[in-house]
Simulated assay, not measured.
Amino acid sequence: MLAPACLSAYLDGLQDVGRPISPALVRRGFAISMAFQSGLSALFPRELDEPVTSNLRALIHARAGMARFIVDELAATSLHA
């Protein structure tokens, strides 16, 4: 999965420029950013207006997985947990 590698690289970059930040805080920011940027579009792709095909089913399955990942990240990074 790419998310952990991206988080690690981002934290390394912050450290390299002398701006270390809590990994938990950066992960939470990443989760919130994904929710805003990708959350709704994951659930409602334009292709829903097209005829149902195996490709559309695969797309919806993949998008549901992406939405599930985003919701799980938000839950796992809650600052109230």
Rank of each mutant, 00 (worst) to 15 (best):
L2R: 14
L2W: 03
A3T: 14
P4H: 06
A5M: 11
C6G: 08
C6F: 13
L7C: 14
A9K: 15
L11R: 12
D12N: 11
D12R: 15
D12S: 12
G13S: 13
G13Q: 13
L14H: 05
Q15C: 04
Q15D: 09
Q15E: 15
D16E: 15
V17H: 12
G18M: 04
P20M: 08
I21K: 10
L25D: 13
V26S: 05
R27H: 07
R27Q: 10
R28F: 02
F30I: 05
A31K: 00
S33K: 05
M34K: 12
A35Y: 07
G39K: 12
G39V: 01
L40W: 12
S41V: 11
S41R: 15
A42E: 02
A42P: 00
L43N: 07
R46D: 13
E47D: 13
E47A: 15
D49Q: 11
T53D: 05
T53N: 05
N55R: 10
L56D: 04
R57K: 13
A58S: 12
L59C: 03
I60S: 02
I60R: 06
H61W: 11
H61K: 09
A64C: 12
A64F: 03
A64N: 10
G65A: 06
M66I: 00
M66Q: 10
M66P: 00
R68C: 08
F69T: 07
F69C: 05
V71A: 07
D72N: 11
L74I: 00
A75L: 08
A76C: 03
A76R: 05
T77F: 04
H80E: 15
H80M: 12
